[in-house]
Computed example of a mutant assay.
Amino acid sequence: MTSELLKPDPKADPAARQTKKAAQLLIASARHSYDPLVDIDWDAPLAEGKWFLAEKRCSLYGTELWDSLGTEQKMLLSREELAASVAVGVWTEHVLLHLVSRYVYKRDVSTPQVQFALTEVADEVRHMIMFARLVEKTGAEIYPTPPKTLRSGLLLKTFAPVPALWALILLTEEFFDRFQREQSGDETIQPVVRAVARIHVVEEARHISFARTELERFVPTLSRARLGALRRLLAGIVAGMRKDRYNPLMYQRAGLDPKTAVAAARANPNNIENAKYGGQRIAAYYQQIGLIGGPSEKVWREAGWLS
């Protein structure tokens, strides 16, 4: 019998498929990774008349309040919304790298899965620094993480089970990936923002692929109780993202009354479409593999992530 016949069929064996995928992603990481400190021209001046977020993705776009603003103030708000979203990205990357480190802790470092997980940690560290440099480059200030979010993150990174780790990675990365793919090709946006988006999209594509493989192996093994708990956790994250989307500080820094601006943003139908756009791909996938169902489905629909 040849060695080829002894090889496990990746389609029949989820663990073998995961190993094969990790080995492929390690090669892709070696060929297509970036160092943002040298691969982005941080010394280039900001471009005149370019947005920091696409105009249609700004939270007040389409409202009477938006129409009352001058172009300069609209662009200032786009900068502040970018900076606020980047702060959420930094917090998310920080939590995820802790979770991935926990995944690695008791596993064999010689396996492709663990080696790719370590590569992912390195990627996330670079991304956190890249995001911080981006905020500095735009002229904005770093947005502080709210104490409640810090406490939640501490619990997540310490106690979240392994299936929750990959489900959370996929949820956050898929959502932001939708917008960053759009940003990377939008010539109305600042070149430095597009450069950051391109790097993040390329490297996060590997993280997304690995997380999907992990989930497809883990989810079928979950008991009904554990599956229900994971569904509730993910629905809670989605509800929290919906609630915390409109940071009063970003409106204040853009020279607007925070209460008026938050109320206008929450009532803005355009933001339901934005949420649906961001969540469309991940919501469909989670329905397919069983991570949306029962009472959790209502939460996803109320957040606008499901039709």
Rank of each mutant, 00 (worst) to 15 (best):
E4T: 14
D9Y: 13
P10I: 00
R17P: 13
Q24F: 12
L25S: 07
P36Q: 06
P36Y: 03
L37K: 13
V38T: 13
D39V: 04
I40L: 09
W42F: 07
A47M: 01
W51F: 03
L53R: 01
L53W: 00
R57I: 04
G70S: 04
R79K: 05
E81C: 03
S85R: 11
W91N: 08
S101Q: 11
Y103T: 01
Y105E: 14
A117G: 09
A122P: 12
D123H: 12
D123E: 15
V125D: 08
R126W: 14
H127P: 14
M128D: 01
F131V: 09
A132V: 08
A140S: 05
I142F: 07
T145H: 01
L155D: 10
L156D: 06
K157E: 15
V162K: 12
L168T: 12
L170W: 10
L171Q: 00
E174Q: 08
F175K: 11
R178C: 12
D186M: 00
Q190V: 00
V193C: 00
V201C: 08
E204I: 04
A205S: 15
I208K: 10
F210V: 11
T213I: 03
R217V: 12
R232A: 15
L233Q: 15
G236M: 04
G236C: 04
R242A: 12
D244G: 13
A265F: 09
A265I: 02
R266H: 11
A267F: 14
N268F: 01
P269R: 14
P269M: 04
N270S: 03
K276A: 14
G278R: 00
G279W: 03
Q288V: 07
L291D: 05
I292L: 02
V299A: 09
W305A: 13
S307F: 13
